Structure formats: C-alpha cells, structure tokens
Amino acid sequence: MNDNEQAGGPSGTAYPTNGLDDTVHQRHRLGILTIAAETERVEVAYLREALELTAGNLSRHLAVLEEAELIQVEKGYHGRRPKTWIRITPRGQSALTAEIDALRELVQRHQQQSRATGPAD
C-alpha cells in the first residue's frame, strides 16, 4: 500500500485542493462571486455591508476579480445618486462552479474517510 492509498485516495488521482483557484478561493472574493451569481447584478454598497468590508478592501477585491475577467463593473446613477454595480461574467460563473465542485469533492472525501475510520476519541 502506498502513501496515497493510506491517505484514502487512489494512486494517481489529484487531491481535491488542487482544483481550488487562489483568485476565487479567497473568502471575500468567493463571497462576492457567490452573491453576484444569485442575482443579475449587485450594488457594491450591498457587498460592503454583507461581507463586512471597508470600501478600500472591497475595491481591491473587485479589482482582482475584474482583472481576471470574473466580474464586470458598471457605474451609473439611481436618481441623482451615483451607484456602482457588479455582474458575474460567464467566465466568473464557470470559475465559481469549479470552485464549489472542488470544495464539494473535498468535503465528500473527508466524510468518506471519517466514516471509514469511525469517530475520533
């Protein structure tokens, strides 16, 4: 039995964390993409509140996601008030789906291993 088999994985199979994308996986960016995927567009002020971020911190995360073409930033007005919205792009939706799939696989692997070894004492 090799080390991979002892760890509960078949030989030659990539470990689920290899499928995680550092750009998407960062918790605030994952939150931004997840919220954006739930609606057509989301106002930046809502993201700031929901994710409990400062304006500067949120701006930096949005810049990273926009540079990776995972979101589009849209500026406009609601009445006389300037507003900024973001939309998840098709590329962003694919990246989010891949991230969730990798996390799901990791959780399933952990649960299977936990069942096989029984409760820890």
Rank of each mutant, 00 (worst) to 15 (best):
R109L: 09
T13D: 02
Q93D: 11
E105S: 15
I88R: 08
H78P: 03
D22A: 13
G118Y: 00
R91P: 13
Q26P: 02
A116K: 00
R60E: 15
Q72W: 08
T97C: 05
L47V: 05
Y77G: 08
E38A: 14
E43S: 02
L62S: 08
L65I: 03
Y15A: 15
K83C: 08
V107P: 05
R27Q: 11
D101S: 14
E74N: 14
G56E: 15
E105D: 15
R91Y: 12
A45E: 08
D121V: 01
V64Q: 02
T13Y: 12
I71T: 10
R48F: 00
V44P: 04
G31P: 04
T117C: 00
V107C: 13
E5W: 06
Q6N: 03
E5F: 12
L70C: 03
K83A: 09
L47P: 01
T23M: 01
T39S: 12
T34S: 12
H28C: 05
D22K: 00
Q6G: 06
V73M: 13
P82A: 12
G19C: 12
H110V: 03
R60P: 07
T23K: 00
E74P: 10
V24K: 04
V64A: 10
R41L: 01
A36I: 03
R27T: 14
A116G: 02
D121T: 03
Y77W: 13
E52L: 13
L47Y: 00
N4H: 11
H28T: 06
D101C: 07
D21H: 10
G76R: 11
E69S: 12
E43M: 01
Q93Y: 10
P10C: 03
E52P: 06
R91D: 14
T84E: 13
T84Y: 04
A98P: 08
A36Y: 06
G19R: 11
G56F: 10
R80V: 01
R87F: 06
V44G: 02
Q6C: 02
W85F: 14
A7M: 11
L103I: 03
S114G: 05
Q113C: 00
P119M: 06
I88G: 07
I86W: 08
E99Y: 10
L65T: 15
V73I: 14
I86V: 15
Q108S: 13
G12S: 06
A14E: 12
S94H: 06
D121A: 09
G92K: 03
R41Y: 09
I71A: 09
P16R: 13
R60I: 11
P82H: 04
A50V: 12
H78R: 09
V64F: 06
Q111Y: 02
E38L: 10
L62V: 08
R41E: 07
S11I: 15
T34A: 14
L96E: 03
A7F: 13
E67W: 11
D21P: 06
V24I: 13
A50G: 10
V44D: 05
G12N: 12
H25R: 01
S114N: 12
V44W: 05
T117S: 00
